[in-house]
Design a protein around this nucleic acid. Sequence first.
RNA 1: CGGGGCGUCGUAUACCGGUAGUACGUCUGCUUUGGGAGCAGAAUGACCCAGUUCGAUUCUGGGCGCCCCGACCA
Length: 422
Amino acid sequence: MTRMRQSQLFTKTRKEAPSDEVAKNAQLLIRAGFVHKEMAGVYDLLPLGLRTFEKVVSVIREEMNKIGGVEMHLSALQDPAVWQKTDRWSDEKVDSWFKTSLKNGGELGLGFTHEEPLTNLMREQISSYKDLPTYPYQFQTKFRNEARAKSGLMRTREFVMKDLYSFSKNSTEHMAFYEKAAEAYKKIFERVGLGDKTYMTFASGGSFSKYSHEFQTECEAGEDVIYIDDASKQAINKEVYDDAEVYKTTGINKATLREAKAIEVGNIFTLSTRFSEALGLKYKNQEGTEVPVFMGSYGIGPARLMATVAELLSDAKGLVWPKTIAPFAVHLVELSAGNEDVKKEADEVYAQLTAAGVEVLFDDRDARAGEKFADSDLIGIPLRVVVSQKTIASGAFECVERATGHTTHKTLSELITDLSHV
RNA sequence: CGGGGCGUCGUAUACCGGUAGUACGUCUGCUUUGGGAGCAGAAUGACCCAGUUCGAUUCUGGGCGCCCCGACCA
């Protein structure tokens, strides 16, 4: 669906944010009708929110496909057996499990990540060096029993993650891909409008390896503290700030670093053979020797990314979406006040823009100008096109850029020409 | 999980040991129509369970829920 009449959009905007939301991202997304809070750390995507979410997903998907990613979809329900093999089933090892049980009493888990089932599955697919490298990925719901959900959509208990896993022959082949993945990630953050403020950040490797890389977007609402090197656009996570080896590896001068709060919008890990060895994922090399597959994992949460954009690119009037992830390209607003000529003209503009392939949200509601403008500002679609008696008389429609407030007047054909360039 | 705070119409807020007011939204009517309109009317509310009390939305205890700080974040 590339268009929508606002009279049929069931979500309503609100003047005030709910008192239980402090985070700006949640306040704006709820006020504009993009999301609904189901419970702490659990949000529903409403029509506008879903559209933006899907746009973010598309951007990520395109970049993953470009570097050889192959999309698939794994189950959320998890068999304990495979997790026991890597020692990640017990609540002592992993405290964020949501666990449930079968009617017959058998235990199940709701996946918080997918290294185990995928590695296990790939044993059927990988047996020779000829099968490598390979890069399966998915957009899939993760469940994490966070001790504390916080910051609106930033840290939730149920969320979709794009997780890509690389299966390589050795660390050299792995590192080549790791660097390609890092470049793809940079492109993703640029495309969604966060390029200026997102830094590839040296971080601890968790339980997998000594170091990993996070993509951190500088933002006051973030929960991480990073140290930014503006010259190289790199950063260092506070957790490894005092590690001398980090400076040797990166060549960063500790003295020039600037402290900032940031949101982790993506991360990439070298997993090495930690999972392939535990689960027996091996391949035969050219000499006929069995070797464990060398792995990596690469995650991005599209909803967190959407929330980060909401947090950073909004203004006092509401959301300001970049064209790449806006729910619609154009917000067509008719100010007919019941005037049939204006209505007819607006309908015509709606039909023609749609026919030209432009995604349009058409505010055909019987509401006053002030309310329509306020809603339009709140929702944050990049371009507002106004159809009213005034614009009909002048022969050109008023076009207002949401981000800048810049206003121009264009005929329908000029408008279509402009928009089809995007 | 430790600490703190908070639960009142759909939303945001107020007051009160004697069953609750305002604003926005909603409904009806009239007026208005380029920046969240005006007038008149209407409907809608105390998280749950105990206790104290003649009487509890108010006080006490417990539960549940939500937010914030911290810890955690594979």
